[in-house]
Simulated scan of single mutants.
Amino acid sequence: MRPLTEHDIRTSFVNCSKGEAKRLGLPRDLADHPWGDLDFLGWRDPGAPERAYLVADRDGLLVGVALRVTSGASRNFTARSMCSVCLTTHTSGGVALMTARRTGEAGRQGNTVGQYLCVDLACSLYTRGKREAAGGGVVDESLTVEEKVARTQSHLHAFLDKVTG
């Protein structure tokens, strides 16, 4: 992914108003992100922990999506959950259901789309082996890193298509 500016990020959102996009809390360390290893920029809002955001390049256009993070019931320490995008397994709350308001008329009627995602939205780094899940890990499989990246991107694009479709 190419490095993004604050302007790039704020103008990319498709499921919130311009005012909401202007007010959302951005990551403080944009310049320090490992852009070459990212399939999307994802972050939790430090001022509102129930909010998360992701911005992805979709066919040359940036698509930003505002997410709500469910606070789900406390999980058993040994219980494992799997991210639907990168297929990384986590223990103890490392995966959460995140919902996005759909675009257009469906969104105005209150329709949402949900996906189980890594709570830190570091799917790209897990896929590439740049970060390890605490108490979890990636499924033992024979795919190459490039194949895993392609699968992660495919799952991400399918989610974005549900939000915008």
Rank of each mutant, 00 (worst) to 15 (best):
M1Y: 07
P3L: 03
L4T: 14
E6S: 15
E6I: 06
R10A: 08
T11M: 04
S12H: 03
F13Q: 04
V14K: 15
V14L: 14
N15S: 09
C16R: 08
K18P: 06
E20P: 00
A21G: 03
K22E: 11
R23M: 15
L24W: 05
G25Y: 02
L26P: 08
P27Q: 05
R28M: 03
R28T: 12
D29C: 00
L30M: 09
L30D: 12
A31R: 14
D32T: 13
D32V: 02
P34D: 13
W35R: 03
D37A: 14
F40V: 07
F40D: 05
G42P: 04
R44K: 13
G47H: 05
P49I: 08
E50R: 04
A52W: 01
A52P: 03
A52Y: 01
Y53P: 07
L54F: 14
L54R: 01
L54H: 05
V55C: 05
A56K: 08
D59P: 00
G60K: 11
L62C: 06
L62K: 12
V63C: 14
V63A: 10
G64P: 10
V65C: 10
V65D: 05
V65Q: 04
A66V: 07
L67S: 07
R68N: 12
R68Y: 07
V69L: 06
V69I: 14
V69N: 02
G72P: 10
A73R: 15
A73G: 10
A73D: 11
R75P: 01
N76T: 09
F77K: 13
F77Q: 05
R80G: 02
R80T: 12
S81Y: 04
M82W: 04
M82P: 00
M82Q: 10
M82N: 07
V85G: 01
C86Q: 14
T88A: 15
H90Y: 15
S92Q: 09
S92T: 04
L97F: 00
R101E: 09
R102V: 11
T103N: 08
G104S: 15
E105L: 06
E105R: 13
G107E: 09
Q109A: 15
G110V: 00
T112S: 02
T112P: 00
G114V: 07
L117P: 01
L117D: 00
D120G: 12
L121V: 10
C123D: 14
C123S: 13
S124G: 14
L125Y: 00
Y126D: 08
T127C: 03
R128V: 02
G129T: 10
G129F: 06
K130N: 11
K130Y: 02
A133T: 10
A133M: 08
A133Q: 13
A134Y: 09
G135D: 10
G135F: 05
G136R: 12
S142D: 13
S142L: 13
V145I: 07
E146Y: 04
A150C: 00
H155N: 15
H155C: 14
H155A: 15
L156H: 09
F159T: 05
F159H: 00
F159Y: 12
L160P: 08
D161E: 13
D161S: 13
V163E: 08
